[in-house]
Design a protein around this nucleic acid. Structure first.
Ligand code: AMP
Ligand code: AMP
Ligand code: ZN
Ligand code: ZN
Lengths: 218, 218
DNA sequence: TATTCCGATAGTGAC
DNA sequence: GTCACTATCGGAATGAG
């Protein structure tokens, strides 16, 4: 079986997968922790229906789909929020200045979701089984190892759940999308918007600083 | 002072340079071993006149220049021939087949020069002080580290002393020459003409074999 | 087409 | 998609009263 089907067993037999990734399943969905999380908390929501699973997300995720799976996405959101709350707290700035990054980010779920969570899909998924990413916007992870990883979540390559279904599918060819957003797009810090060009190593070090400036272990 | 003038002290004060590179100098020329030799034996002949030294080789090396410096080039050739003779001998092939690579290469200077020596210049020199390369055609050297190094001696980027002065300077822009010959030109073995494409590492290993198949230490 | 260091880019085979 | 490995390609600094 091709690597494109690495997620398949999570929907065919979630009860027998023993890698500890599954956090919820019923007849309709499986929710897992991504095995190669690109942030502190990175979940995938997978519809179990073969029909839905093999569809391309941009054409499959319509309002009916959203109505049906919205609650499961919400539950993934709740999980991430809780997990982050349990593990981290907002760091008090030395300067004690009033910023957007006050404690409310980890106290108020709506603020957390708006400022610090990404829910959506990749324009060109690699994994064949349809999945929705629910990922915290810290990008503080040893699994985040190259430009493609970062830009797949931090450019228009990432399509927000709220923007689905797309009014009109204006996406180009897969190769063109990848070239434009994953290869040629500058690396831009998601905290402060500093532009790092192609310097992934510099961005990595910077993300480490950003994370440690904003959060600390409880 | 810029790295482009790394050769300057060899012509301004050859008597005080103490790196052991200088093998001959008089009022007109300095002859040195290249500090980063790309073959077993790699010399540079440098006119000491400021006027000549700052000229571009393709416009400066005319018949008058050649008459004047030909003898020094010859002396560099003699040095390389002698050095190679002293250090190496042609290896007897197991198959004992009659090839061009018989012992005459290291016994007859004319054959050595014709088959195994390159005398000339780079189309686009990096070093600002005019210099003529006299280099054995083995390319067996730890200093030969990349495609540019190899192709600068094994494509038309290298202009033979015998072809100077050029009838007509049909060279393009420096950048274009560099792209065409150093970057885009395939790597081709100078012994057997096998094409290695961009695989410099493969060529390196092959050159090691070629050298050891043709020569051995005395 | 200076060297050297460091890192970005790219292809491979395997899982 | 992952990893590990190898190797190619690419920019930046290079100096120093
Ligand atoms: N073998 C695997 N098991 C579980 N998840 C994986 C595996 N390989 C890749 N992934 C994740 O699957 C996701 C696929 O994302 P996508 O680019 O949308 O197809 C990525 O976030 C990967 O980290
Ligand atoms: N610092 C140096 N001292 C002596 N020779 C050098 C130095 N740097 C480079 N070279 C050599 O100078 C030559 C310049 O060749 P060119 O490409 O014709 O300018 C090359 O063969 C280099 O190996
Ligand atoms: Zn930042
Ligand atoms: Zn060969």
């Amino acid at each position: 079986m091709s690597w494109r089907y690495a997620l398949k067993s999570y929907i065919t037999n979630p009860e027998t997968v023993d890698d500890g990734a599954v956090i919820f399943f019923n007849d309709e969905v499986t929710i897992i922790r991504d095995s190669f999380p690109k942030s502190e908390c990175h979940l995938l929501v997978l519809p179990r229906s073969k029909q839905l699973s093999r569809g391309h997300p941009t054409s499959t995720i319509d309002s009916k789909f959203k109505n049906n799976f919205g609650p499961y996405v919400d539950s993934a959101i709740n999980y991430v929020f809780k997990h982050f709350q349990d593990k981290f707290q907002v760091k008090k700035s030395d300067q004690d200045m009033k910023t957007e990054w006050d404690e409310s980010v980890l106290k108020n779920k709506d603020i957390f979701v708006n400022k610090f969570l990404q829910i959506g899909i990749h324009s060109v998924p690699s994994m064949a089984n349809l999945h929705i990413h629910v990922i915290s916007r810290d990008y503080h992870s040893v699994r985040l190892k190259n430009k493609k990883h970062y830009n797949s979540f931090n450019t228009e390559f990432f399509i927000d759940w709220d923007d689905l279904p797309l009014n009109k599918n204006t996406l180009g060819k897969d190769k063109d999308i990848e070239t434009k957003y994953l290869k040629n797009h500058d690396l831009v810090c998601c905290y402060c918007h500093e532009n790092f060009g192609n310097k992934f190593s510099s961005l990595k070090k910077h993300l480490e600083l950003e994370f440690n400036n904003h959060f600390e272990f409880k």
